[in-house]
Write a protein that binds this DNA or RNA. Sequence first.
RNA 1: GGCCCCAUCGUCUAGUGGUUAGGACGCCGGCCUCUCACGUCGGUAACCCGGGUUCAAAUCCCGGUGGGGUCGCCA
Length: 472
Amino acid sequence: MTQPKVRVRFAPSPTGYMHLGNARTAIYNWLYARHHGGAFVLRIEDTDRERSTQAAVQVIYEAMRWLGLDWDEGPFLQSERFDLYRRRAEELVASGAAYRCYCTPEELEQRRQQALAEKRNPKYDGRCRERREPRAGVDPVIRFRMPDTGETVLEDRIQGRVVTPNEELDDLVLLRADGTPTYNFTVVVDDHEMDITLVLRGADHLSNTFRQLHIYRAFGWEPPAFAHQSLILGPDRTKLSKRHGAVSVLQYRDEGYLPEALVNALVRCGWSHGDEEVFPLPRLIELFDLDAVSNAPAVFDFEKLRNKYNAEHIKLASRERLAELLRETLARRDGVVLDPADPRLGLLVDGLRERSRTLVEMAEGARPLLAEEVVWDEAAVRKHLQGEAADMLQALVQRLEALPSFDRPAVLAALDGLAAERGLKLGKVAQPARVALLGTAVSPPIDVVLAVLGRERALARLRAGVARAAGG
RNA sequence: GGCCCCAUCGUCUAGUGGUUAGGACGCCGGCCUCUCACGUCGGUAACCCGGGUUCAAAUCCCGGUGGGGUCGCCA
C-alpha cells in the first residue's frame, strides 16, 4: 500500500509509421500498467522538428486505437513543452552541470572522422567545458558535462545489472543551436515531471540510459526504474526495420489480421507463460509481468503470426464481430457491398472461419458464393459433372424444391436423404452439387453454400448443372 | 574498433543441478471427412565450442566463437 502507483509511458517519435518494435513496446507498457492497476501515459517525442510530421502522429493514434491500447493521460507533445526544457537546461548551466559549446557541426564531424581514422573513440573532447567567451557568428549548443572517470551502474529490471565505464560517455547536447531540446534531455525531464515509475523500452536505448542517469543526478532527481527489452529481429537477425518489409502495424490491419492476434504474437516475442501460446487480452493482462520477459533478442515469426495466432483468434472471435469485419473487408477489397444485417454474413463466417487464417482469406473464400456468375473449373467439371451426375442432380433439385425452408439443416438433410436412397456416400452427391453451384470442387460445406446462395439461385444453378452434365 | 547485451530444434520458446530435453509454427505421414480446411495421432529437428565446479550439468563459473545493440545538434 505504501508502494507508489505504477506509472509507465509509451513515447514514440513520429518520424514514420508505427512499426512492430514500437508496437511491442507500447503493448508491454500497456499490459504492465493494466496488470498493476497503474497509469499508461502517451507522449509524443517530436523534438526533431525536421523529421516529425503531423501525419505520423495521426498514424500513431490510429495504430494505438486499432490495437486497443487506450491511454490514461496525454497525448503530450514535447513540441509544446520547449519552454520547460529550456528553463531546465539553463538550470544545469547555472549549476555548472552543463555548459555552452561553440563548436560547429562541421568541426565536430571533422574531429570525429579524424578520431575514427586514428582508431580513437570519437567522443566529444570537452574543449568548450571551461570556455567563457562567446564565439562570433556561432550559436552555441548546451552540453551536459559527463564524468570522465568511474563507472555507472544500472539495475535493469530485464537485463539485470549492467555496468559501463564513464569514459564511454561523452558530453551530450541538451539544447541544439536553434534552441530546441534533444531526446536524451527531454526524456529525462518528462519522465521526472510525469512521475514515471518505470521506463520500459527497447534495448537500443540501453546505452542512453547511463547518460540519462547522470542528468537525473545533476538535477537531484530520483530516477525511475528501467527495463530494457531486447530487440525484435528480422529473418536476417538484424534489428527489425523498414528493409525487412511488412513492418508497419496498420498494414496488418489491412491484410486481414485481428489486433488481438498481432498483440498475442508480439507479446510472445520475448515473453512466455509455460507452454501457453494463445492468449486473449484479458488473460494477457492477468499474466503479463516483467519476470517472464527474456533478455535474448528474438526473430519475429511472420508465418506463425498468420498460421497460428491469427488463425486461433479468428476461431475465438464472436460471430457478430467477424461478420462485420468480413463485411468491411469485402467492401474495401472487393467492392462487394453487403448490408450489415445481411444474414449471409453470419453463414459465411460459420463456413469460413475454420478455413481462413486472415480476414482477407475469408473474403476470398466468400466471393465465389456471392458472385453473380459461375466461373467453371474445367478439371472439376470433368471429374464431377459427367453422365450419371445429371440424373442425381435432377433428383436433388426435386428434393430441394419440396423443402419448406431452405436453411442449413434442411438442405443437408435433403442431400443426406438422396445419398442414402441411392446407397452412396454423401460425397458422391455433394461434389457434383458443389461443382454445379460454384464451378469448383473446393468450397465451404455444401449446406453453407446452398443456404448462402438461397433457393432461387441454387436451383437455377443446379438445373444448369443438370444440362451441362447431360450434354457434356 | 571501444563499450554493452545475448546464445535450447529452421523460428518462438519451456526448462532453473538428476527429464526418454517438453510445447508451438513449418515440414512429412496416418486417421476423421461432402471438397478444402478444422481436429486428431505419429514422425522430422536443438542444448555453439573448450575448460572448470560437482557424485551429477542445457542449467553454476571462466575463456573462446558466433550474433546483436550502441558510439549524432535522430529518437
